[in-house]
């Protein structure tokens, strides 16, 4: 780890330089810095911090990033919940956003029991994909437990609250088991529908074609392998969960941020807007409005 700084500030000679001017190697190094600096020091998932903190981190760096952060503020986004940069950040952020949306839903008892039956009904698909039931169960239990504590907490069990939810996601055993379960769910969905997905799969390192099986074994199931659009599409579909991804990539010419909707079902009338994950090259956090 080269830097003690907490911030992924591009170490550029020219203060107005932005990511467009960086070579692929430099971009990789920058991404690696985010990963190195956040691995093992940060909580797996943090308390929210104001967007101004993120802005300060880019003040000495890229002008485009600053404009894009200001754009997010102008759209009403105020806080960032950071995930550790360990390659599991997409799955962890998505899982948290999913359970949190059940917890804060206006009809959380109903929504969480629907979610619980959705999880239960996913178990046969995992077995069909070749994962042993008893192996999946341990990972499944951790996620299902959280949802069940919203739907119908046991008599001696404290119901889930925002703070106990965060605690659960900071506990490596629970948090990583949930990440694994979502990885298996994603893999099973890809394996179940290989013909549809294979056309969209590219080898993340070579850019060449790749079979669904190799893709799943090497880039979905192992922990630490970052998710790409295919995994995001598949997983949001498997969870029946709408999200948006905001791309803070330093590449916008007018300082706006591109929001991409991964929308599975039309949102119910009056439903809150879907959670937003904030993407920076190689990393996902959760973007919030408080």
């Amino acid at each position: 780890m080269a830097s003690q700084s907490d911030a992924p500030v591009p170490q550029s000679q020219n203060l107005n330089d932005d990511l467009n001017a960086l070579s692929v190697d430099e971009l990789d190094r920058l991404t690696q810095n985010i990963l190195d600096e956040t691995t093992s020091t940060r909580p797996l998932l943090s308390e929210t911090s104001p967007l101004s903190v993120l802005r300060e981190e880019y003040e000495r760096g890229s002008g485009t990033f600053l404009k894009q952060i200001d754009y997010l503020s102008s759209k009403g986004y105020t806080h960032l919940r950071r995930a550790r940069g360990d390659g599991d950040c997409f799955y962890r952020s998505l899982a948290f956003a999913w359970v949190e949306s059940l917890l804060t839903s206006q009809d959380s008892a109903f929504d969480s029991s629907m979610a619980l039956s959705l999880l239960e009904s996913s178990l046969p698909s995992l077995e069909a994909a070749g994962f042993e039931g008893s192996v999946c169960q341990d990972f499944y239990d951790e996620l299902a437990n959280l949802v069940r504590r919203i739907a119908s907490p046991g008599p001696n069990e404290p119901p889930l609250t925002p703070s106990t939810l965060l605690e659960a996601f900071q506990n490596p055993e629970i948090s990583n088991s949930i990440v694994v379960f979502l990885r298996l769910l994603t893999s099973a969905a890809i394996r179940a529908d290989q013909d549809s997905y294979e056309a969209f799969l590219v080898h993340p390192e070579t850019g060449g074609p790749i079979t669904a099986q190799t893709f799943c074994e090497n880039f979905v199931e192992p922990c630490g392998k970052e998710a790409d659009d295919v995994q995001i599409t598949v997983l949001t579909k498997a969870l029946n969960f709408n999200i948006q991804v905001a791309y803070l990539d330093g590449r916008s010419s007018d300082g706006t941020v591109n929001f991409v909707e991964f929308q599975i079902a039309p949102p119910a009338p009056g439903a809150p807007p879907p959670p937003v994950l904030l993407y920076r090259p190689g990393h996902y956090d959760i973007l919030e409005k408080h």
Partner: peptide, 10 residues
Amino acid sequence: GSEGWSPVLS
């Protein structure tokens, strides 16, 4: 290795 290990292996 971390590249090839997956939690479904035993």
